[in-house]
């Protein structure tokens, strides 16, 4: 039986830092809310040890998730197809033929800009079929968008 290999390219290593920053920011907010609602104001019965436990979980997530995610996130573009692999706990591989590509989006969130990264999203006519490559270096992303636009244009049909 043949097996599906992973896509050939990794995303930028800086993506790890971006994911960690986002996770840490969310975690800090969560822990701060817990601290204020629990031990400080006694509004909720949250003891200090529960807060400490939450902080440890948040820390583990912020450190572990980006490393794991970076190992999973990969992408590849060939003459006839786009192939991505995303996720960490749930791993998802998506393959779309070049002939079915409808739009190619380039997006830079505020946090991504901080790290000079960008997201390329390739959509098809199916609502279940968008391929997202998060954490590409900005220049690489722009070049990829151009490349994809040219390749998708050369294929006839209305892509449905």
């Amino acid at each position: 039986m043949p097996e599906l290999r992973e896509p050939s390219h990794r995303v930028s290593p800086r993506a790890r830092l971006m994911w960690a920053t986002a996770a840490a920011a969310e975690g800090v907010v969560l822990v701060a809310v817990l601290v204020v609602a629990g031990p400080v104001t006694d509004w909720l019965p949250v003891p200090w040890w529960a807060v400490a436990l939450a902080a440890v979980a948040v820390l583990a997530y912020a450190v572990g998730m980006p490393v794991w995610r970076y190992r999973v996130h990969r992408w590849e573009v060939t003459a006839t197809a786009v192939y991505t692999q995303t996720g960490w706990w749930v791993r998802e591989r998506r393959i779309a033929p070049m002939s079915r590509i409808q739009t190619v989006d380039h997006a830079e969130g505020a946090l991504a800009r901080l790290f000079g990264l960008a997201t390329v999203t390739v959509t098809t006519a199916s609502a279940a079929g968008a391929l997202e490559i998060v954490g590409l270096p900005r220049d690489r992303a722009l070049a990829l968008v151009d490349e994809l636009a040219v390749q998708a244009d050369t294929v006839a049909g209305d892509a449905t």
Binding site: W89, R91, R93, R94, A96, S126, A159
Partner: peptide, 8 residues
Amino acid sequence: IGWNLRAS
């Protein structure tokens, strides 16, 4: 128009 392989 495409394939997704999803596994937790």
